[in-house]
């Protein structure tokens, strides 16, 4: 007798788990950082650079990079910019609300593999969010790396994320931080210009040939930065970028996030430059 096909329920691959919002910090006028804790008390572990799908009951789901972990409580942090239907709803959450989480997904930054190198972090706008947990990790393992440099560009001073933390990072002697804005304000006395204009500053003290670069930001910024970094002698294998595309299933089945042959949700979102360089040059890929 041929046995009955087993009726196994669809497991959590597609169904989010409930997490509680334990804190909301306003970063800028349109961006907040959520602090989340799983309701079932399980420890959530992830690699810097990975992302979760955040779900709001009956509203929808969006991919959001994990932007850090709270040093004491180990709560998960997600920085969300309110630019669409679901993200606007996420930005209105309050402490105590429940949000659905599926993940973590994707390949993160190769932090173990690049021990011994100097690390140059290049962040544009909200691109700093997936790089923040990388920086947290690097600082927690500081002796394993040579120089660590953060170059961060935002639209205006009011759009700078993690401002109290930026100040603390600036104060550290084992970390170099350079911040620039596209447009200043009356109080701003720092750099003004796109983030790549900070590279000449860095070049003076960093051996670019031995630097590993971790980058995230608008794709235009990444394309330009790749050329500038290579002109300065950074080998392509030492450049890593985090990319984004429309996502639905986040597990490499639904096809939405394809970028050439790569599924960004599964093969990325972090890629070494050689893998995606030719793809970045094709328009409307």
């Amino acid at each position: 007798m041929i046995s009955q096909a087993t009726s196994s329920p669809v497991p959590n691959l597609f169904l989010p788990s409930p997490f509680q919002v334990t804190g909301v910090r306003r970063e800028t006028s349109d961006t907040i950082t959520l602090r989340l804790r799983p309701l079932d008390g399980e420890v959530f572990s992830f690699q810097p650079g990975q992302f979760n799908m955040l779900y709001l009951f009956g509203i929808g789901e969006v991919p959001i990079s994990i932007s850090g972990v709270h040093p004491r409580t180990h709560d998960l942090e997600h920085t969300v910019r309110a630019v669409g239907y679901v993200t606007r709803a996420l930005a209105r959450l309050r402490r105590g609300d429940v949000v659905g989480v599926r993940g973590p997904f994707g390949h993160g930054w190769p932090l173990e593999e690049v021990r011994g190198h100097s690390i140059l972090i290049l962040a544009g706008g909200i691109g700093l969010a997936p790089l923040r947990p990388a920086l947290q990790y690097l600082l927690a393992h500081r002796p394993n790396y040579e120089q660590i440099v953060l170059l961060y560009g935002a639209r205006t001073p009011a759009d700078l994320l993690y401002q109290p933390e930026l100040e603390r990072w600036r104060g550290r002697l084992d970390l170099q931080v350079f911040v620039t804005v596209d447009r200043g304000d009356e109080l701003w006395r720092g750099h003004i210009g796109v983030v790549t204009t900070l590279l000449p500053l860095v070049e003076r003290f960093l051996d670019m040939r031995r630097a590993v670069v971790l980058m995230c930001g608008p794709e235009v910024m990444l394309r330009v930065a790749v050329r500038e970094l290579e002109d300065r002698g950074v080998p392509a294998e030492q450049i890593f970028l985090s990319l984004e595309r429309n996502m639905k299933c986040a597990v490499g089945f639904c096809g939405h996030c394809q970028f050439g042959p790569a599924f960004i949700c599964r093969d990325g979102p972090v890629f070494p430059l050689p893998r995606v360089r030719s793809l970045l040059e094709i328009r409307e890929l």
């Binding site: 596209d182 210009g193 796109v194």
Partner: peptide, 23 residues
Amino acid sequence: AGRLKATRLQLLDLYAPPPERRP
């Protein structure tokens, strides 16, 4: 040339919020 390139990128206002998405 470098300043002009940087200026053009500044003009693009790449970190501006994306346009409203139609439902």
